[in-house]
Simulated assay, not measured.
Amino acid sequence: MTPEPAEHARYRGYLEALSQAGGPDECSVISAVLGDPDQVMADSAILRHLDLRAAQMGSGAAFTAWSRQVATAIHGREPLERRLREWSLFADIDAGRPWSTADLGEASNWLQLRTAEHAGSHRALTVLAGQGRTRRIRNAARARLDRAA
Rank of each mutant, 00 (worst) to 15 (best):
M1V: 12
M1F: 10
T2F: 05
A9Q: 11
Y14K: 01
L15K: 04
E16Q: 12
E16W: 10
E16P: 00
L18M: 08
S19D: 15
S19P: 02
Q20M: 12
Q20V: 00
G22I: 09
G22R: 14
G23H: 04
E26Q: 14
C27V: 15
S28H: 12
S28L: 15
I30K: 03
I30H: 05
A32Q: 12
A32E: 11
V33Q: 10
V33Y: 08
V33W: 09
D36E: 06
A42N: 04
A42I: 04
A42P: 06
D43I: 13
D43V: 15
S44R: 13
S44N: 14
I46H: 03
L47G: 15
R48C: 11
A54S: 15
A54K: 08
A55Q: 11
Q56G: 10
S59G: 15
G60N: 03
G60Y: 00
A61T: 13
A61C: 06
A62S: 14
A62L: 11
F63V: 04
F63G: 03
F63R: 01
T64I: 10
S67G: 01
R68T: 12
R68G: 10
Q69K: 12
V70F: 06
A71D: 09
T72H: 11
T72M: 10
A73D: 01
G76M: 07
G76R: 07
R77P: 01
E78A: 15
P79Q: 06
L84N: 03
L84I: 06
E86S: 07
S88V: 00
S88N: 08
L89K: 05
A91F: 08
I93E: 00
I93S: 02
A95F: 02
T101I: 11
L104P: 04
L104E: 06
N109E: 15
N109W: 11
L111H: 06
L113E: 09
R114S: 05
R114D: 05
T115H: 01
A119V: 09
G120I: 01
H122T: 15
H122K: 13
R123L: 15
A124R: 00
T126S: 15
A129H: 02
A129W: 02
G130T: 02
Q131K: 12
I137M: 04
I137S: 04
I137G: 05
R138E: 06
N139S: 12
A140P: 03
R144E: 10
R144F: 00
L145E: 09
L145Y: 09
L145A: 08
D146R: 14
D146L: 13
R147C: 04
A148I: 01
A148N: 08
